[in-house]
């Protein structure tokens, strides 16, 4: 948002409040009341309620649910849904096995917000598109059918991949970009039981239904995240390009996870995972670029080729034209940092 209205008093509509004792209780509340919402950290939801963007008539507080553990079992790191971003980012197992996740989370928000924001809540973080936030503007995500204010409006922060005529908003989370690069999955429980949703299938592209950010059922509760072991811990980088040195949303971000190998030909890339933030309605995995780099030598030439390939199909909307150049440059820079090559 560019300007803020002066507000001295709470403008939030009233609502009812329940503390859930367990997941079953939370699911029951969501099932019987379509206008109920879960609240954990609340750093995004309460903000949206102040703007009038969201107006649940009941909040179900899930902070007392016991999804606060970080564990490592049979090759998988699991992080409970109500663990805060601060706690997870500083956790020794996260730092040892999945440093990329810690780097990405520490690049997001501020220490105070990370102290409240939870893993589950960050997955559900809504776009920061100013047209979504301003209830006097049209927005298909906030009010389906009203149109998209950003398409021909001020769209500097907006998508260059996977957008539709209905919505060009981006997912604002840093954590989500790392999770996509790390092949995480989301553990949920709902009226039909438990399931694991691969992170790539969790967030969705806008298409004709930008009001849906993800594939979670309205009555489901996120209970945790699962991240499989990998051999990336020595070569990870989360590069975030933004308007301020800290505490700003990404214009472009790049998550790089590399497994390097010394061969007779020099330093080669054995395995590579790449994802970008600030470019699409969901964290954007760079599959084609990964395939190109796999087995190749870690050189700037190869990185540039991969970045060029990653940009195929990109489309800008005016104010965000600069992203067409900033994005590939950021990919190259992040790969250089992660691989440790000098040139």
């Amino acid at each position: 948002m560019q300007y803020r209205k002066l507000k001295l008093e709470v403008a939030v509509h009233n609502f009812q409040y329940t503390r859930a004792k367990n997941a079953a209780g939370a699911i029951a509340e969501l099932s019987k009341n379509p206008a109920a919402k879960l609240v954990a950290g609340g750093t995004n939801l309460i903000d949206l309620m102040k703007y009038g963007v969201m107006a649940p008539d009941r909040l179900v507080d899930i902070n007392r649910l016991s999804y606060n553990a970080i564990q490592k079992e049979s090759g998988v790191l699991s992080i409970g849904a109500t663990v805060t971003n601060s706690v997870a980012a500083a956790n020794e197992m996260v730092l040892q096995y999945q440093p990329l996740l810690s780097q990405a989370m520490l690049a997001g928000a501020s220490p105070q917000l990370r102290n409240k924001a939870t893993m589950g809540g960050n997955l559900l973080q809504r776009t920061r598109c100013p047209y979504f936030y301003d209830i006097s503007e049209p927005c298909n995500k906030r009010e389906p059918g009203t149109g998209c204010g950003a398409l021909k409006g001020y769209n500097r922060m907006h998508a260059i991949f996977g957008a539709s005529d209905a919505c060009i908003a981006v997912n604002p989370s840093d954590m989500n970009v790392a999770l996509v690069a790390l092949d995480a999955s989301v553990q949920v429980t709902g009226p039909k039981g438990k399931r694991n949703i691969p992170i790539a299938e969790f967030h969705r592209l806008p298409g004709k239904h930008p009001e849906l950010d993800n594939t979670l059922d309205r009555r489901e509760v996120i209970t945790g995240l699962l991240i499989p072991d990998n051999a990336f811990s020595k070569h990870t980088t989360y590069l975030k390009v933004r308007d301020r040195a800290s505490y700003a949303f990404a214009l472009i971000s790049v998550a790089v996870a590399l497994e390097m190998e010394e061969t007779t030909e020099g330093t080669t890339i054995k395995e590579v995972h790449l994802a970008m933030g600030g470019v699409a309605h969901k964290p954007w995995r760079l599959t084609a670029a990964e395939q190109l780099l796999k087995g190749k030598k870690a050189t700037v030439e190869n990185f540039k080729m991969a970045a060029e390939l990653a940009m195929q199909g990109a489309k800008s909307y005016g104010h965000n034209d600069f992203k067409l150049k900033l994005a590939p440059n950021s990919i190259v820079q992040a790969l250089k940092t992660a691989s440790g090559i000098k040139a």
Binding site: R4, K7, Y17, V39, G41, G42, T43, I46, D47, K50, L59, S86, S110, P111, Q112, L113, N115, K116
Partner: peptide, 24 residues
Amino acid sequence: CDQGQCGACTVHIDGVRTNSCLTL
């Protein structure tokens, strides 16, 4: 700001710094 963007409302909750404007 009352929107979690300025930090003027920072307090400690059980010793942990938090924006008091964005929590109920």
